[in-house]
Design a binder for these strands. Structure first.
Lengths: 206, 206
DNA sequence: TGTACATCAGTGAACGCGCGTTCACTGATGTAC
DNA sequence: TGTACATCAGTGAACGCGCGTTCACTGATGTAC
C-alpha cells in the first residue's frame, strides 16, 4: 500500500479530474476505470470506494459541467456593460475554454454518452437545456432594456448562439489545432452582433 | 450454410446499410461486428470477406456520408431560384434527414470516431470541410449575383449555416423526439435570412 | 453436352484482450475509555 | 497517557463478458475443355 489514504470527497474530485484528463487524451471511448485509476495513482478497484460504478463517474462529470456552464454565464454577464457585451464575453470564454479543455464539449456533445445510458441522456438534456435557458434569460433581459433587438424569439436566439460554438468544436477536434478559433469567434460574433443589434442607435438605453 | 452467397459489391452495400441501422439503434458505441453481421444475416467472420477490418467499415460509412452531403447541396441548389432559396432548401432537407436518419449526424459529429483512429479523423475532416466549402461556394455565387449580402465572409457564413443545424442534432438526440425540428428550422432560418439579405430591395437581380 | 477444376462467399471454433465489477484482505487513522 | 477497537480507503486476485480477428473448412457457382 504505497498510496496514502485520502477522504472520499478529495478522491471523488481527483477521480473526476482524472476522468476529464483521460477523455482529453483518449476520447470518451478511452475512458476506462483502469486508466482513471492509474491517473489517480490507485488500483482500479479502489475507485469503487468512492463511486458505485463507472456510470456514476460519468454522471458526476456531467453534473460538474452543468455547474461550470452556469458559472460561465453568470461570470460573463456580471462584469458586462450590456447584453451584447455579456454574450460576447460568454462566446470568447467558451472558445477559450474549448482550447484549454477540449474534453468537456467532447463529453457533452458525445453521442456515445447519450446513447449508452438513458440516465446520461437525461442529464445531458438538463445541462444543454439549462444552458440554453440561461442564455435565453440574458437575451430576454437585453431585449427588455433595449440593448438587443426585440422582435426575435429569445429561445431561438439562444440556440443560434450555441450554433456559433458547436461548429468550432467539431472543426477544432478534427483539425489538430489548425482551426483558428479566435478568428472564428471574431467572424461569427460580428454576424451575430449584426443580427441582434436594435434597429435604432440606442444600443445602451437604461 | 443457410445464407446464399452474394457478390462482394452487394454485400458491402448491405454491410454499410446494416452498420447505419445499428448506429441508429445502439449508437456508435454499439457498432460491433457481431451486430452488423446479425443484421446482414451472416456470421461475424463473413464480414471479413468484404471488408479488411471494422475500421474499414466505418471509413466506408464516412465516405458514403460525404457523397450524400455533396449530393444534398447539388440537388437543393439545382431546383432553387436563387442563393437564399438554395440555402433554405438545404436546411430543410438536412433537418428532415436528421429526423429520418439520426444515425448519420451521430456518426459525423461523434467524438468517439474522431478520437479512436487518426484515419477517421482525417476522413471526417474531409467530409466536414468539404461540406463547408460547397456551402461557401454557393454563398459566394449568391454574393456575386446580388442575391446575398456581399460584405460578409462566405466561409464564416457557411460555418454559421452549419451552426443552424448542429444545435438541432444534439437537442433532437437528447429530447426523445420532443424537440420541434420544423419550428427550429423556421426560426433560425428567419434569422439567417435576415442576416444575409442584401441591403437594398433587389433580392433577385440577375 | 458433360466433366474437372478454380474461385470465393460463408462457416464455426478458437484466440487474446481489455473491460467493469466483486470480494476477502490489510493496515493506518481516529475515537472511547 | 496508554490501550482496545471501529472505521474505511486501498489491495490484488479473480470473475464473466463481449470484443475484433484468424483460420482451416465447406460447398455452391461459373468457366475451360
Amino acid at each position: 500500500m504505497a498510496t496514502p489514504k485520502l477522504e472520499t470527497r478529495i478522491r471523488q474530485e481527483q477521480i473526476l479530474q482524472a476522468a476529464l484528463e483521460v477523455i482529453g487524451e483518449e476520447g470518451v471511448q478511452g475512458l476506462s476505470v483502469a486508466r482513471v485509476a492509474a491517473k489517480v495513482g490507485v488500483v482500479p478497484s479502489a475507485l469503487y470506494r468512492h463511486f458505485p460504478s463507472k456510470e456514476a463517474i460519468i454522471d458526476g462529470l456531467l453534473e460538474m459541467v452543468g455547474r461550470n456552464l452556469k458559472a460561465f454565464v453568470q461570470e460573463s454577464c456580471a462584469t458586462a456593460s450590456d447584453a451584447p457585451d455579456c454574450l460576447h464575453r460568454l462566446l470568447v470564454r467558451h472558445l477559450q475554454f474549448l482550447k484549454d479543455h477540449p474534453a468537456i464539449p467532447r463529453l457533452v456533445f458525445s453521442e456515445e454518452v447519450i446513447a449508452t445510458h438513458p440516465g446520461h441522456r437525461q442529464r445531458i438534456r438538463e445541462v444543454v437545456e439549462g444552458y440554453l435557458d440561461d442564455v435565453a434569460d440574458r437575451i430576454r433581459a437585453g431585449q427588455q432594456n433595449g440593448s438587443l433587438r426585440g422582435d426575435l424569439d429569445a429561445a431561438a436566439l439562444a440556440r443560434l448562439f450555441l450554433g456559433l460554438i458547436q461548429p468550432a468544436v467539431i472543426l477544432w477536434s478534427v483539425s489538430d489545432g489548425e482551426f483558428d478559433l479566435d478568428r472564428h469567434g471574431r467572424e461569427v460574433w460580428a454576424m451575430y452582433q449584426d443580427l441582434v443589434r436594435p434597429p435604432s442607435g440606442n444600443t445602451s438605453s437604461e
